[in-house]
């Protein structure tokens, strides 16, 4: 649905986006993840035609943004980083205006506005002036504006910023349900959000893609090892020795004792081998019961920091 090829954006000497290439498939929810200033918003501004890339091409549904801007813009609903609101309009009038400029016919307009207001639960503020709304409501009006014309592609720049936890959960559910019919690209620096909503993640740092994969794959691939955390009842040195003798175990590390008569250990092994059963058998044979065993794959947060710091070290 969206094809971004070799897109770069330079401001004088500063490179904001550096040769980005990726595609987003129909019906996919893609997450942009990156620290502030990584080039997420710039990339989104380029895809939507607000900015022009210095190099490279962007195609939406086969139409080039520079050659057929009208075709592309008709297919995209965009919610920029800061919601584009007219403070002196009521919510209903504002959404009506948004629908009108996006080419919704007069006959369908009222219905489109009602639908958008219902999806974002704005019906009770429909008659209020935008400037008098709270931050969370303003944010939702911004999202409503993006989807009022029901475009096939939605680009949402930090859609949940400024919302309270309840609204965040609702908005995430909304985005996930939109993902069934729409192609969605959203950016965030809140990692659990990306993990909860997106099919695929693109991690961007300093204008470059540092990783692109499904959330599950990223987590597995990056650690390079699968890690287990154990709590075993038994003397520390004995337990460590038993664990080291299990086949395929790379590294055993003691974390000390947090409960009387037990020891906490982490065990690492290559991801191809499932070492849970051999560990159980080895410790059971020695008579040291396992009180808990947890898989410790990296969280998205750790992957993220890992990638970003690794990038910085390489430079």
């Amino acid at each position: 649905m969206i094809q971004v090829e070799n897109v770069s954006k330079r401001y004088g000497q500063r490179i904001a986006v550096d040769k980005l290439t990726f595609t987003v498939n129909q019906g996919e929810i893609l997450g942009f993840l990156g620290p502030n200033g990584a080039g997420k918003s710039t990339t989104m501004n380029i895809i939507t035609g607000y900015l022009s890339a210095t190099e490279g091409s962007v195609k939406v549904d086969g139409h080039d943004i520079l050659e057929e801007p009208h075709e592309v813009k008709q297919r995209i609903g965009y919610m920029p980083e800061l919601p584009p609101l007219y403070p002196d309009m009521t919510v209903q009038d504002y959404l009506g205006f948004a629908a009108e400029i996006k080419g919704v016919t007069r006959a369908a307009r009222a219905k489109a506005v009602d639908r958008a207001m219902e999806m974002l639960q704005l019906a009770d503020v429909r008659g209020r002036l935008v400037k008098n709304l709270s931050k969370g409501y303003k944010q939702r009006v911004g999202v409503a504006q993006a989807l009022v014309a029901n475009p096939p592609v939605l680009i949402l720049d930090e859609p949940t910023i400024g919302l309270d936890p309840q609204q965040i959960i609702e908005t995430r559910a909304l985005i996930r349900s939109l993902g069934r019919e729409h192609t969605v690209v959203l950016s965030s620096h809140i990692l659990p959000e990306i993990a909860a909503v997106c099919d695929r993640v693109l991690i961007i740092n300093r204008g470059r893609i540092v990783a692109s994969d499904t959330t599950a794959n990223l987590s597995r691939g990056l650690s390079g090892e699968s890690r287990l955390a154990l709590r075993v009842a038994g003397p520390e040195s004995e337990v460590l020795e038993r664990l080291r003798s299990v086949a395929n175990v790379h590294k055993v590390q003691s974390l000390g004792s947090r409960e009387a008569g037990t020891v906490d250990v982490t065990v690492e092994a290559p991801p191809a081998h499932d070492i849970r059963r051999p560990i159980f058998e080895a410790l059971a044979k020695a008579g040291y019961p396992i009180l808990s065993m947890r898989s410790q794959d990296l969280t998205l947060e750790e992957i993220f920091l890992n990638l970003i710091t690794r990038e910085t070290e390489e430079d």
Partner: peptide, 14 residues
């Protein structure tokens, strides 16, 4: 200032 130019320019209007 209101960032509404982003909405106008990314809409199908010329």
């Amino acid at each position: 200032r209101q960032h509404t130019d982003q909405m106008l320019i990314t809409s199908p209007l010329s």
